[in-house]
């Protein structure tokens, strides 16, 4: 299969602005997740409406209203940020490690190693990943680590292909050839010369990969396969609210906006970084 590469935003000035906006959005989200107990007096899992009168609209001491069982939606969105950020970070880290290892091995050793590893990449690209994720998420024992693990295990192909491509060009550079001529071991060449060379590209993919993982996690939680209850998660909030969308649309809007905020922020960082890093290297 042919390569499809990620393209930057064009100008460095524009990239810097995009990156800054993204960094502010993600920064705010991380702060909100960390400071959740101080930003809301409510427990995200507690029923806070005394006499139940159906979901309450936004206002009246509940910024985003309350949900169908009387929990505070703002509190659930805040604590849900912890879940999404945790899942996104861990899944991305797993993909990054697998993808880098495979990409470095394929690009550096070439030949049969490369052929076999690229065949594996094709295999993973062909598989309908959401269906496989559903199967894995059902099969494996439920825990807070299950979802990030399966997303990470299936999401490394972009890392692998990109790193391999960069290694193919780096391998022919003079300083790598010189190190080899001086008798440096394969491990030393990879760790000292190739890893630093591929890192900028990997950082970009890490931001984009994390946003992808957050969207996938939201989809899985929507299907009822996310992190186990009662941990609040944005996708599950949408599916719980679906039946009531006619009477309580805010229950659907709030988690959706939160998902979009996280994803847009991370994508702005990722796309912004492409040109910024290229500019630094030039």
């Amino acid at each position: 299969m042919a390569e499809t590469t990620v393209v930057g935003l064009g100008s460095a000035a524009r990239s810097r602005r995009f990156f800054l906006v993204g960094a502010i959005m993600v920064g705010a989200l991380v702060l909100a997740a960390a400071a959740a107990p101080w930003l809301t007096p409510y427990d995200p899992d507690a029923i806070v409406v005394m006499a139940y009168r159906g979901p309450l609209g936004p206002g009246n001491g509940h910024l985003f209203g309350t949900d169908t069982v009387g929990r505070d939606v703002w509190a659930r969105v805040l604590y849900g940020a912890r879940t999404s950020l945790f899942v996104g970070t861990l899944a991305m880290a797993i993909s990054l490690v697998i993808g880098m290892a495979i990409g470095l091995a394929a690009g550096y050793f070439g030949g049969l190693v490369d052929a076999v590893l690229m065949w594996v990449v094709d295999l993973f690209l062909t598989m309908p990943s959401l269906l496989l994720l559903i199967v894995l998420a059902t099969v494996l024992p439920p825990s807070i680590f299950t979802i990030p693990l399966v997303i990470g295990l299936l999401g490394w192909t972009t890392f692998g292909r990109t790193v391999r491509g960069e290694v193919l060009t780096l391998r022919e550079r003079d300083y790598v050839q010189a190190a080899r001529a001086l008798g440096a071991t394969d491990a030393r060449i990879i760790v000292r010369h190739l890893v630093p060379g591929v890192l900028p590209g990997v950082i970009v993919l890490a931001a984009l990969g994390m946003s992808g993982a957050i969207i996938v996690d939201a989809g899985l939680s929507y299907l009822g396969l996310g992190v186990p209850l009662p941990t609040p998660s944005w996708g599950r909030m949408v599916s719980d609210a679906q039946t009531y969308v006619g009477v309580a649309p805010w229950l659907v809007v709030a988690p959706g906006v939160a998902i979009a905020l996280a994803v847009v922020g991370l994508n702005l960082i990722g796309y912004g970084l492409i040109d910024l890093l290229a500019e630094r290297r030039a």
């Binding site: 989809g219 969308v245 006619g246």
Partner: peptide
């Protein structure tokens, strides 16, 4: 960039709210 950040199940629910309810 923004349009791609909304998961399909969420868009679907908004459409249901607007056009069905």
């Amino acid at each position: 960039l923004v349009g791609l950040s909304f998961p399909p199940f969420w868009l679907g629910n908004l459409l249901i709210y607007q056009f069905s309810y």
